[in-house]
Design a protein around this nucleic acid. Sequence first.
DNA 1: GTCTGCATGTAACTGGTTACATGATTAT
DNA 2: ATAATCATGTAACCAGTTACATGCAGAC
Lengths: 181, 181
Amino acid sequence: MALEHAILVSLTERAGSGYELARRFDRSIGFFWAATHQQIYRVLRRMEDSGWVTHTEVAQEGRPDKKVYRVAEAGRAELTRWLAEPVEPITLRDELGIKLRGASLGDSSAVLREVERHRAEHNIRLEVYLTIQRRDFPKPDKLSGRELHQYLVLRGGVRAEQSFVDWCEEVIQALRSEGIR
Amino acid sequence: MALEHAILVSLTERAGSGYELARRFDRSIGFFWAATHQQIYRVLRRMEDSGWVTHTEVAQEGRPDKKVYRVAEAGRAELTRWLAEPVEPITLRDELGIKLRGASLGDSSAVLREVERHRAEHNIRLEVYLTIQRRDFPKPDKLSGRELHQYLVLRGGVRAEQSFVDWCEEVIQALRSEGIR
DNA sequence: GTCTGCATGTAACTGGTTACATGATTAT
DNA sequence: ATAATCATGTAACCAGTTACATGCAGAC
C-alpha cells in the first residue's frame, strides 16, 4: 500500500489536485513509484473515505475547476504509523532477464538488440537523474532534513540506473565476444 | 505477460509439474521473477487452454500423482514470437524510497533502522548469488549458449543486489553524519 | 503425534493497466 | 484547423497476493 503513503508524503509537502499529483509523479516521486492519473484519482477517493485527506473545490479562470486535497489529522497519523513499520526489500522483476535466459530458444541477435535498446533507455534516465542532481543538489554534504532525504532517494535512482547500464554493457560484451569466437 | 514466458523457458529446459516449477521459481528464475504455486497453477491451466503446453498424468509410488507439463508446438512458436518483441525496461518501485522521502515527517531513526535492515537483507541475497556464481560458473569466459545466458542473468542479480547494498550504505552514512552534526 | 515434503487446488481480494469519455482553453 | 494542456472521471480487465483446503508419506 505504498501509493497511498507516497501521496500522503507529497500532499504533506504541498496540497494539490489529483492532476497536480499526477504531474509530480511524472517527476520526482514517480521516478521511484510510478502512477497514472486514473489510479491517483481512485486512491484519493478511497483516502478521503478513510478520512486521511479532505478536499476543497477551487474555481479557476480559463481553466476547469479543481479539487485541492490536503492531509487530514488521520492521514498524518497513518503516515507516522506506516513510517515506523517494516516494508519488504525490493525484489527484481525484470522481463529482460527472462528474455536473456531464453535467448538460445529464439533469435539471440534480436535479444542482443533488445539489451542495447535497454542500455540506451537506462542511459537516458541516468542522465535525467544526474542533471537533477547537479542542478538541485550541487553541495550534497551541506544538506539535512527533507532536502537530504530527497537527495538520497535521487541517489538511489542514479545508482539503480547506473547498475542497469553496467549490466547491459556486460551482457552486450559477452554476447558479442561469444559471436566472434 | 512475462510469467507465461518464464514458464515456457523453464519447461523447455525440462518438463515438470506445477509443484516442480514452483520449486524452480524459488531458485534460479524466481530470483528474477518470483511466483507462488497458486499463480503457477492458474497460469498453467490458461496456457493449456491456449494450447501452449500439454500435460500427462504421472502416477508415483509413495507420493501423490502429478501432472507433468511440456511445451507444445504452439508454445514454442509463442516463445519465439515473444523473444523477438520489445519489453519495457524496468522501473524502480521501492517502498523504502518513499519512506526515506517522508522520513522527516515521522520517526527518522526508525527509518534509519529500516535502511539497515534492508542492507542486511540485500547482503544476504548478494551472498547467495555470489555463492551460486562461484559454484556453477567458476570460469565465466569459457561459457557459451544457454549457460552463458544463465550466467549473465545471475550477474544481473549480483549487480542489482550490490547496488542496493551500496545505496543503503550511502544512506546510512549520510543519516548518521547528519545526526552527529 | 506432530512436523515437513509432495502435490493440487478454490476463492476472495488488492493493485495496477488500458481504453474510453468529456470539455474548456491556449498555442501553432 | 489541430494539437497540447488542464482537469476529472468510468469501466473492464489483468496480474498478483493471501487465506483456506485436502490428503498421503516419511521422519523424529
